[in-house]
Design a protein around this nucleic acid. Sequence first.
DNA 1: CGAATTTGACCATG
DNA 2: CATGGTCAAATTCG
Length: 274
Amino acid sequence: MALDTPTAVVLEQMTMAQQSAAHLGELFVAASPPMAAEHGQALTAEIIRCCDRVIAAISRGATGKKRKQVVHGGVMPAKRRARGAGARQEVQSGTTADGFMWRKYGQKDINGSKHPRFYYRCAYSGEGCAATRRVQQSQEDPAAFVIAYYGEHTCGDGASYACQQGAAPLPPAVIVDSNANAGGVVGVVDRYQYLESPLPLLAAEQSTRRHGGEDPFETSDRRWTSFSSSSSSEAEPGTSPVLEFLEGGLGVGWESVVNCLGFGCDLPQFDMLQ
DNA sequence: CGAATTTGACCATG
DNA sequence: CATGGTCAAATTCG
């Protein structure tokens, strides 16, 4: 495990922070004064975005040493991602829904792999958003998808992304260190119960389920109910789930992140964080 | 009928 | 030259 390197710790903690914020955002959905709910969701979206930038910056720094710099003659191209270029983040998840709107632009059978690989770009790529992701059904666990994220969403205005549908309902995920040789697991984030997806199934999942004979999804008990009808939105009388969550320290060890930063791990340019 | 997906071709990379 | 990532015409979907 690479958890003993400062960079890995920061990456893991920031990812946990993202998921915590996403969870908090869901609690705000059910918050009693609609005004507070709105502000709460905006704030959690902001937190998620900040974490996203930190992860991106750190990942860039970590991979930059190994990645070959392709120098183009001054023109923009950079269209095609270098083969095997490291993902900004790689997660293993039970669903391909991550709160963002993606448009599929390709599918490919991969040589050693039993399942095809799907290529998505941000639904707002037309507006210049460069975010991209690659989804592949896991070999060992056919019920899981390995999702690699590339690029960053640029379709946002600071509080939220145009392509983001509320707080990201991040499912339990295994965060994989894409910089490690054999895709070493950096950390396991399974602190939350399985969250229902507010989104319609994406094409990859739909087609997988449709044609499935021994398809994992056909036999799965998982139910995909609407987000708003989730029973978890009913708060116990007298207690606020939002407050409970906050009192629990956001569920994230911020100290370890701060400590890590304080001990001077070689973080990349922070001006990129804006 | 417009929008999203599918699918085979194209092409960069190693 | 094989492989993986992207393009774009054809097709399907809502």
